[in-house]
Each structure stands twice: as structure tokens, then as C-alpha cells.
Design a protein around this nucleic acid. Sequence first.
DNA 1: AATTTAATGTGTAAAATAAACACATTAAAG
DNA 2: CTTTAATGTGTTTATTTTACACATTAAATT
Lengths: 246, 246
Amino acid sequence: MSVDAQADKAKNIKTLTTIQSEVEDSNGLALSVDCVIFGFDENKLKVLLIRSDLKKYLGKWSLLGDLVRPNEDLDGAAYRILKKRTGLSDVYLEQVHTFGSINRHPAGRVVTVAYCSLINVQHHKLNILENELHWHDVTNVTDLAFDHQEIFDTCYRRLQKRIQEHPLGFNLLPKKFSLRDLQNLYEAILNVKMDRRNFRKKFFSMDFLIDIDEMEQDVPHRPGKLYKFNYEKYEKKKKKWVGIDF
Amino acid sequence: MSVDAQADKAKNIKTLTTIQSEVEDSNGLALSVDCVIFGFDENKLKVLLIRSDLKKYLGKWSLLGDLVRPNEDLDGAAYRILKKRTGLSDVYLEQVHTFGSINRHPAGRVVTVAYCSLINVQHHKLNILENELHWHDVTNVTDLAFDHQEIFDTCYRRLQKRIQEHPLGFNLLPKKFSLRDLQNLYEAILNVKMDRRNFRKKFFSMDFLIDIDEMEQDVPHRPGKLYKFNYEKYEKKKKKWVGIDF
DNA sequence: AATTTAATGTGTAAAATAAACACATTAAAG
DNA sequence: CTTTAATGTGTTTATTTTACACATTAAATT
């Protein structure tokens, strides 16, 4: 391994050289994990990207990923990446799809397992600048390195579907949130406008918002009530409908 | 490679020995694909299993799988397995989940990508006995080799969910089918009873059943009408609903 | 202090969908 | 010719979704 490569390894940054050597070490097949980390800030859905350090894709943005280690399972690798890049544990994480096109990676045959993660950007206080990490508006995500655009698209579509079926959205919000926050979140993710009255009715009827008897502070208009999400109640009420709905 | 292993390879059967050598060749990491192949026969949902030839799991049933080759992508490997085991091309195939527990395979670190496939058993005319292949009732699938029980469970749940959202069921039926066949299929997969009148109303209102003006033959009661599925019309009418439905 | 502003918060009617339910019809079997 | 075991259909009710409008509140402005 070159001195440069060693230095890179010390910095925990994978370069084309280091990955290539690892792929070669493993006789042509390597396994990686890539995380699509979503956040919600200023009423926009964001995704955390890093600038690629590979020559072929120099300057392009890419997902956060790493090779899977011999002694860790796939979820473990994904959690490790998340912990390293966001400092957060206990985040929402879901395996989405595995991408294995023969030439998807310039360093050789690298099959990657894509994960989707939802975090609360309030909790994320990372050295974003140093690492060339950046929160991108999902609407501006184009032309990523490798096949990361396809991976991102797949994960975003998955999120859009999932959030209609499960209350994932709360992972992206602060513990206390207003119904307006919640609706903004849904509108941003699904890219639609919703009727405020029906939206509220829907969530109240589901009955797993806890009224914590606090109001928004420092808003330039009438403050709204704040709520918390009741996970326990959700677990009990979870939909078990069976039917046909093409 | 041993003579035995070579013979096994010639027969296209993977043994512990052959897999182990391949895993060792690849310096500890191997990638495989496992297919959960569903069929529908005698009004029962079936899954195609093969008897394990690994000592550790001797006699247990397992899914159909193989190592991914250096020059093929994941879907390609899955299609190859399907073609080999069922003789069929152009079948419904969906990647479901990737399983990578450290000790899931006795031969070493083998990460496997699980696929779910739906085939028409009428079209499947294979040498089932010779290969120790067998169609199992899904209700009797227990205690599979490796982590294949978990993989099967995951794929079965995925099928149950998918079939409520998309007209996959037609892949399991003959080209011409009666509404009773269709309802039996849904009832078998979802393990529920449905109201016959409402079921028919639902499908007629979706308007992608083609009345081919033929009747069932050789049934011991009043014959029902036969239908074909109109894929084109479905593609046009596909649901694009956006909302919340926990 | 009064007014304006920009939100929050709520109720109701209409439309669409899903669920529950019963009886006439048909062709094969006896 | 009768029985049997299905197919095939229509209506009513309940539930869910959609569409829509006005009073209320607190901050900001005058």
C-alpha cells in the first residue's frame, strides 16, 4: 500500500487506490454499503452527499458508503457509516436495494447494498465543511458519481411510498412539532399540496399525536400547538387491512 | 479441485466443497442469488424447493440459488437460475432483500441477494424427481436449510403486500382463467376469505379483464366464463394516488 | 390602543368507495 | 325430471375521502 493510500486510510477516506487494492485483494469481488441519508430543514427535503475523491468522478457528489468489513453484517456496516458521518445512533435505517451491474464501479466488481436513512438535522452537528459533506435539496440532485443517481432515485421513490404507509416522517422532525411542520414535511416529500383541514383530520383520527400543551415560539403569526408522536399507540393501531388496491 | 467436485460442477450442482473452494478462491467473500419461486396449483400457493446437498443440512429443503458469476449482474444470475430450474424465460422476477449475516453460510462469508419469482406451473415441465426438486405448499414450509426460512418468509410477505397493490397474480395463472380461479389465488396468497360479489365487482370496475367469450370445460358444475388479463390497459390505468394510509 | 396581517383551528355537505347481504340462473350429475 | 353446486348479478348501508368557508388568535404595524 502506498504512503498516500495509508494516509488516506488513516483519515478514513477511501480513494480509488485504496478501494482498488481491496477489490484486488478479494480476488475481484467486493461488497459495499451506500447510505441515502435524508434530512428535513427549512421545509425542504435534503440528502447528505460527499464530494467524490475518485479521479474519474472528481468533484461530483456521491452517496456516503464504504466497503463491508469481514466481521460485520450489512446493517452493521450501514450503521457504522451513519455513525461516522452524522454522529447519530438509533436512526431510522432501511435496506432498499442491491446494485450489482458489472461495470458500476471503476475499481472493479463492487456490488453495493443501498440503505435509506432518516435523521433529524437538528441533532446532526457535524464538521460538514471539513469533510466536503453537504446537505442538498433533493430537487437539485442530479448527475451523481458512479450509479449513485440511480440509487438515490430508487431510495427517494421508496421513501415516498413508505411515508404514505408508515409514520416515518417523525424521524425527520424535532421531537416537538406543529401540524404545519408535519404537513410541510409530507408536501415536500411527496411533492404535492394537501388540504390543511383534511390533513389535520386524518392525523387526529389516527390518534397518535400527543398534545403536549405547548405552543410554537417566535413565529411571526399566531403560534400553533406542538405535538409529540406516540410510537406505542401506533404499534397497537397499525393497519392490518387486506384488500385489492391497484 | 477434487474429482468429485469436478463431477458435481459438471452436473451443475453446487456442493459444500465446490462453494467452499470458490469462497476461498475469492478471499473470503462470495455473492449468491437465491430465488423464491412461487407457483399456484390445485388452488394452493406453492414454492419450489430443492433438497440440500450440504452435510450440515442434509435432507433439509432449501431455495434455489447459485453463486453470482464474475461476468453477470444480479438479475442475470437470478434469470439464469430460473431458466435452469424451470426452463422458463420471461418470468416475473423481483429483487427482494439481501441477506448478509456473518455466519449465515457454513462455507464462509456468502452474502445472498433474494429474488421472488412467479411462474405458471402449467408451463413448468421439469425433471422434478431427478433433481430432488419439489413444489411445497407454502403453508408447510418450515425449517429450511441455512437462513432460507427467513428469506422465504420475507419473500412471502413481500408477495402478499405486492399482490394487493399490483396485478401480479396473473403471472401465476394460465392465460385463460375464471374469476373463481382468480379469487382462489388471492385467497390462497393472502390467507383470507373474500366476498365473491365484491371481488368480482372490484375486478370488473378496474376494467382490465378481457372477456374472451369462452367457458370452463369439464367442471362438475355450471361452467364459468374465462378471461384474459389486459396488461396494456393496466399500464394506462395504474393508480397514482397520493395520500396517507397507515 | 386600534388595526392589519397571516397564520391557526374547526364543521359540514357531497362524492366515492367498501362492505354486507340474497336470490335467480345454469349446466352437470344422478 | 329433479337435485346439486356452482355462476352471475343488484341494492342498501356504512365508511372514507374530498371539497370547501369562516371564526379565532397573536404578532406586527400604524
